[in-house]
Design a protein around this nucleic acid. Structure first.
Lengths: 206, 206
DNA sequence: GTCTATAAGATGATAGAC
DNA sequence: GTCTATCATCTTATAGAC
């Protein structure tokens, strides 16, 4: 293996902190306390915080890319793929974060930290966003072509809107301290991409 | 007036920095450099950073609330109100920030900083989010009732989705370093709330 | 109101022993 | 690989002169 157990533990702690508080809001001391080593030992594995951040973004991208590939392998049904994507983000929100604070998708969190990040990390974040939007755009386009989804306009614009809405919904849910708000928003979004929108969740048609 | 010119200048500088980098990513020193005074003078106006943050959130909420009231005063047309709301956020993105970095809505930015904020600010951010979603929900509900808008499901869920999408679109636009991406996403969203969605921007119907 | 001076603590980072 | 020790710098914040 290319990465030691200690490096893994450091990355796990760093990811939990980055997802709850952002990349600039935790220190090597925070990591040292949680991993049970000294800050100097962390510098051995990740000489600078930029190195740590780069590894963090790369690992997260790889994990998510693997999950998206798994979804595409499990089902070809476009609505089901979208539902699984929304569930993926919900599971992030449900993963215990720091204390009672909710985790946000690392990509969305780093997007909000963007201007303060080292150049390497900025590239990684932009790549993550592009990859997610492209995956969604592909699902949307296929779904519209096979008649399982219905929406108007450019599939790239639709995918950007959907990605933005899901990421934003995590932020809104956390600022309301109500994870169920993410679920409600995601369900509404998914229903509005369904072929027969009149059967949407919560529709009031009598 | 209840707030001095210096206090105004401090708040202006703090807002620009908070909108580009977040509340924890600027210091009294940053403010002092920009306003042209010393950090001690800032502490005279805002004893603690929590005091500064509280004032920042309150002022921003009041300004936005005033703009939403102005939109409601200018037009009763629901699609036009939504368009004006999207334009409002676009003007934030277009306002020169820190260097060549783009500004984000302060509400969205602080929502991403949420767990690290002092309790007073957390309340203010939650209030801002609730107020914006409630305003949008009212516009959506009225538009559906008078037939100028069409969407399925609960108007609160729709409003949360729209708010989340617009806030998220700003983050995505910035991480792509492409403000026009916000415009494209907003246009797509607005088109999908229009009564006749087949006339949506970018529709490929021949 | 603004300044100088200063405090106490945190931060990312390095040198060198074990 | 991990440690102790140390560094320069930055952070929020206060005391007291002008």
């Amino acid at each position: 293996m290319t990465t030691s157990d200690t490096a893994h533990a450091i990355l796990d702690a760093a990811q939990a902190l980055a997802q709850t508080r952002g990349f600039n809001a935790f220190s090597y001391r925070d990591l040292a306390d949680r991993v049970g080593i000294r800050t100097a030992s962390i510098h051995y594995h990740f000489p600078s915080k930029a190195d740590l951040g780069r590894a963090l973004v790369e690992r997260y991208h790889d994990v998510v890319a693997g999950m998206l590939a798994a979804i595409a392998r499990d089902t070809t049904d476009a609505p089901e793929r979208l539902a699984r994507y929304a569930d993926l983000l919900e599971s992030v929100l449900a993963t215990p974060g720091e204390g009672d604070e909710l985790r946000i998708c690392l990509g969305g969190m780093l997007a909000s930290d963007f201007p303060t990040l080292p150049p390497d990390m900025q590239e990684g974040v932009a790549y993550f966003v592009r990859a997610n939007v492209a995956w969604l755009a592909d699902v949307l386009e296929r779904g519209r072509n096979d008649g399982t989804l219905a929406f108007t306009g450019d599939s790239d614009a639709a995918a950007t809107a959907l990605f933005s809405a899901l990421e934003g919904a995590m932020m809104v849910a956390r600022s309301c301290d109500d994870p169920s708000r993410y679920r409600a928003t995601a369900d509404w979004l998914l229903a509005n991409f369904a072929r027969n929108a009149s059967t949407a969740v919560g529709t009031t048609v009598g």
